[in-house]
Each structure stands twice: as C-alpha cells, then as structure tokens.
C-alpha cells in the first residue's frame, strides 16, 4: 500500500476533549524520516494533550494516529520499542541513583545500556559526575537533565516526543539537548516537541502546528 510508505507518523483530524470542553479539533500532522514538528499554543490550548495523543496515552475524541500505517491501539508495546516519550514529569525516582534511574528507563524502552553507555549519556548532558548520587539530592534543573539523558541512549528509537524539553534548563544544557535533537534528525529520526522558548533546531523538514489560544 503506497499510503503506508509515505509517512512514518500520520495523525489525521485529531480532536481532544477534556471534561466536556473541546480543546482542539481537525489537527493533522505527518512526519517522514528526518521530519520535525513544533507544537505551539498558549497555556491550556492542548499542546501536552496532543503530544500525549501522539504517544498513545490519551485517546483522541476524533481522528486517528497511524505509525507505519497501523493504528496506535493495534500495535501497543510495539510502538514503545520505536518511540520515546518524555512528559512533563521527569520520571526520576528519588530512591534510586541517577545512573540506576537512567539504566531502568533505557531498559523500559527496550535498550540494554551498559554502565559505560549510561555514564556517557549522563556526560552528554553534563552531569556525568552525578551518576552515583541518589536522585533525591538533585536540583530541578539537574533532574531535568537526568531525564533528558535518555535521549543520548535513545539513538535506535526513530520517534521522539518531547514535552517542554527546554524548560528549567540553563543555556549550556539547552545547547546540549539541541545538539542531541539535531543529530537525531540528521540520522533520519523524527521529533515532535512542545516549547515555549524559541529554540531553533536545524532540520530538513520543519512544520509548525499552532493550537492557538
């Protein structure tokens, strides 16, 4: 089927309702390898909801999301092997060390990372020295970095869905995340992100989805 081959991620006529309120409707979005989509909109316009729909967490009120031509509901964890979703909450457990957290997250995504790879990933975010520390002692920004270190390990996953990846980061960390994202796109990966900050990301094919007010 030729349709299947055109887009890897194909979201058609999505609508989202929270309570009985319609946040948005008729939103479409399609990505080919190397494609980058930026979701814009005011607070409460549904950026995060749209990203969660693309991740398969939230069910759209209308429309459907296809991955390699198949509906998300039908492929379940098969999608999880190819997609990395980083939500607003960092998913870093206080009781585990920074390295343990990263190792567990990578394994959840089906990536068997070695200790060395984990340390290099943390180094890519500039927090290699924090690896053995308990996550309890991390600052807000360090916690975000620990979460984003997954990007450095998520090389085999073609689709990244990132919710406000630059929030609570300093200049140094922003440029590190940006470098990871650009390398991912250059490899032919796909990226969808929501962001308040105007962080330029070089990509062959950029589209903007504006959810408005």
């Amino acid at each position: 089927m030729p349709r299947k081959m055109r887009y890897m991620l194909d979201a058609k006529d999505l609508a989202c309702e929270r309570g009985e309120r319609r946040l948005f409707s008729d939103i479409s979005l399609a990505l080919k390898p190397g494609g980058f989509a930026r979701l814009l909109g005011a607070n409460g316009s549904g950026k995060t909801s749209l990203l969660r729909i693309l991740a398969g967490l939230t069910r759209p009120a209308a429309g459907e999301v296809l991955w390699r031509g198949e509906k998300l509901g039908d492929i379940a964890e098969g999608y999880g092997r190819e997609m990395l979703y980083l939500g607003h909450a960092p998913a870093v457990k206080d009781e585990l060390s920074v390295a343990e957290n990263l190792m567990f997250s990578a394994r959840l995504s089906g990536i068997a990372a070695s200790n060395d790879q984990c340390r290099m990933a943390l180094e890519a975010l500039g927090i290699g020295n924090l690896a053995p520390l308990s996550a309890r002692v991390l600052s807000q920004g360090q916690r975000r970095r620990a979460a984003l270190a997954r990007l450095a390990l998520a090389v085999p996953l073609p689709l990244w869905l990132l919710d406000e990846p630059f929030a609570a980061l300093d200049e140094n960390a922003i440029s590190r995340v940006r470098a990871l994202a650009e390398a991912h796109l250059a490899r032919g990966g796909m990226l969808v992100l929501t962001s308040h900050q105007e962080v330029p990301i070089a990509a062959g094919n950029t589209q903007t989805v504006n959810l408005g007010v």
Binding site: E77, A91, K93, G110
Partner: peptide, 12 residues
C-alpha cells in the same frame, strides 16, 4: 513522578 506513564508508553 511520571514513572507510571513511562511504563505505559514503554516497550514492555
């Protein structure tokens, strides 16, 4: 802390 949604969208 967000771990639960990571588990739901994970490869497992």
């Amino acid at each position: 802390d967000g771990t639960l949604e990571q588990m739901v969208v994970s490869a497992q």
